[in-house]
């Protein structure tokens, strides 16, 4: 647990104490942490990316931990929403962990965001440092949103810290069959705010509803609506479970060569995404889509 003085630290003091690269402190405005599993489902990844993009577009600074999975999706989403995002690191700000996120770290800086850390330059990744980092993330944020967290995940530490610091805690629901949503559902049962779209988060922060004016318009904005000219086989795909071309061919009684081709056409249009074990429906509109 973090020392009490740090826990109650005034915002300005905390901001000044952190080592930083990039624009720091960030521009004024609400700050929301989006955290979750390092190995999310396609659904969790899409949810984190979509929420971050919408929040960033509404002027919220999106905070996350630069880890694999949900963290990376949150940073990417904020950048794609032309917003500011801050990575709170468990290492010194002069090293990127994991190394695979070197490019992402550069993109965060290029988009006007920052990499910050409470640890001195040169601090390598140490297991015991990450819970303290999670406290800092909560301290920096007005609200913490958990997207997919299994039991005992680091995201739950961040949520716990947020509760102790009297910050808002919110969670994105998932499938009742998914072990990745056990943690999020436990938070919801204990009273965390339900997140179905960015507006839910903005409302808790007392901010306007101009991001998604029409609640009924949300599904279309989230990409659920079917493009009229788009190949209808897309409705046979799930947004959480990968379906293989073979399964689809069997279900639709079509030659597998044709199904592979039609899925590839949908992939080119950004309507489906390919994962290792098959295809899922893409929730976010791909950049190349009209």
């Amino acid at each position: 647990m973090s020392p009490p003085d740090e826990r109650r630290a005034p915002d300005a003091l905390l901001l000044a104490q952190l080592h930083a690269r990039g624009r720091w402190p960030p521009p004024d405005g609400p700050r929301v942490a989006i955290v979750g599993s390092r190995r999310p489902s396609p659904y969790g990844e899409a949810a984190a990316e979509q929420l971050s993009a919408d929040l960033a577009g509404a002027g919220v600074v999106v905070i996350s931990g630069l880890a694999l999975g949900i963290d990376a999706a949150a940073h990417r989403g904020a950048i794609s929403g032309d917003g500011i995002t801050v990575a709170v690191m468990g290492t010194g700000v002069d090293m990127v962990y994991p190394a695979a996120h070197t490019r992402l770290a550069e993109d965060i800086l290029a988009a006007g965001g920052a990499l910050v850390s409470q640890f001195a330059a040169g601090t390598p990744p140490r297991r015991q440092n990450f819970p303290a980092r999670n406290w800092t993330m909560a301290a920096l944020s007005d609200a913490v949103v958990v997207v997919e967290a299994g039991e005992g995940s680091g995201a739950l530490i961040t949520a716990g810290a947020a509760l102790e610091l009297h910050k808002e805690v919110m969670a994105v629901p998932g499938s009742i069959f998914s072990p990745l949503s056990v943690g999020s559902h436990a938070l919801l049962r204990e009273g965390a705010g339900l997140v179905q779209n960015a507006r839910d988060i903005l409302a808790v922060l007392g901010l306007g509803g101009e991001v998604l004016d029409d609640p009924l318009g949300a599904p279309e904005r989230l990409g659920f609506a079917l493009h009229p000219e788009r190949d209808g086989i897309v409705i046979h795909l799930s947004d959480t479970l990968a379906v293989s071309a073979a399964e689809l061919a069997r279900k639709l009684q079509l030659p597998v060569a044709e199904v592979i081709g039609r899925l590839t056409a949908l992939e080119l249009d950004g309507a489906v995404r390919r994962h290792q074990s098959g295809y899922v429906r893409a929730l976010r509109r791909g950049k190349e889509r009209a």
Partner: peptide, 16 residues
């Protein structure tokens, strides 16, 4: 086009 699309469907590692 269907033949090209099928062939691209076998390019798993472009996707990764």
């Amino acid at each position: 086009e269907a033949h090209i699309l099928e062939s691209l469907g076998y390019r798993l590692h472009d996707v990764a």
